[in-house]
């Protein structure tokens, strides 16, 4: 009897370890595949040139249009989300709203975060159609903002909520108003977490393709104005992998490697920066 139970224990422990190894090895496999396939295709021309004539048949050119486009789209969306999201994250705190209202809105934001980005893309498309605007950088930025805003607000909300009440009470006792306390004490104390949230949102934004598929369009040129269509890395991968020409597929691999590097740097960067900034606050 005891032996059987011990066997069961060992068996399940083995299953668990194997499961975890499976998950981790998939991650390693993805990273390895993209690096091995992408590294030979990645060169200076790839990063610095825009597509030239015959590019999609395998001739000269690079994906600078997609790199710059993606940075603009994700950067713009992150900036807009920050401008809209920081006040929202403060509005969720109990200084500003009732517990019930905040609870419901948190729930709404969580649900919004779960809404597929293709739905935001479709909604953005509907609005742009209604306004008579064609696919453009502005449309892409606004749609991408919808995608990352809920995540950013909830992430900032969680860190702002962690600011100890005592700290705020000291500020109130010194005569500061609620708003002054929010700015001078709470914002400062929550800053490392806010920075992490913003960087992570950028990472989410730059990888999203479904939302900008309808709204940002695609172009071979570097973005000139926010009303023009704009290229992006995810869509560069998506379009180029679908062609039958090996040279063009190579560029999809290179674009994927670039995107992956950006996402990895963002992920690591947010962690490092968050920890470094956390040294300056009270624990």
């Amino acid at each position: 009897m005891n032996k059987r139970r011990q066997l069961e224990e060992r068996f399940f422990r083995l299953c668990m370890v194997l499961s975890l190894i499976l998950v981790l090895s998939v991650l390693v496999a993805i990273l390895l595949t993209v690096f091995v396939k992408g590294a030979p295709a990645l060169n200076l021309a790839m990063i610095t040139q825009t597509p030239k004539g015959g590019y999609y048949l395998g001739k000269e050119g690079g994906i600078a249009n997609a790199i710059v486009g993606s940075l603009c789209l994700a950067g713009g969306a992150t900036l807009l989300s920050l401008l809209a999201g920081l006040p929202l994250a403060f509005a969720l705190q109990r200084e500003y709203s009732k517990r019930r209202t905040a609870g419901v809105t948190r729930l709404v934001l969580d649900v919004l975060w779960g809404v597929p980005s293709i739905v935001y893309g479709a909604f953005g498309f509907v609005i742009m159609q209604y306004l008579g605007v064609r696919a453009s950088m502005l449309g892409g930025i606004l749609t991408l903002t919808l995608v990352i805003l809920p995540f950013m607000v909830r992430a900032m909300d969680e860190v702002i909520r962690m600011v100890p009440l005592e700290l705020k009470e000291i500020s109130y006792a010194a005569g500061a108003t609620v708003w002054e306390t929010s700015l001078a004490v709470v914002l400062r104390q929550a800053l490392p977490g806010i920075v992490t949230a913003v960087i992570l949102s950028f990472g989410r934004g730059i990888g999203d393709a479904a939302a900008i598929l309808f709204t940002a369009g695609y172009t071979d040129y570097l973005p000139r104005s926010v009303m023009d269509p704009v290229a992006s890395l995810p869509l560069a991968i998506f379009f180029q992998i679908a062609t039958p020409i090996p040279e063009v597929q190579q560029r999809a691999y290179a674009a994927a490697l670039l995107l992956l590097i950006i996402v990895l740097v963002v992920s690591l960067g947010s962690r490092v920066l968050g920890q470094r900034l956390a040294r300056n606050i009270l624990h």
């Binding site: 991650l27 993209v34 991968i237």
Partner: peptide, 24 residues
């Protein structure tokens, strides 16, 4: 040590998953 690695997996863009799917 593993939690950030899992987060990393969550952060990989979906087209990259798609590309890996096509290749592997």
């Amino acid at each position: 040590w593993i939690a950030p690695v899992i987060d990393l997996l969550a952060g990989i863009p979906s087209v990259v998953y798609g590309l890996w799917g096509v290749l592997v």
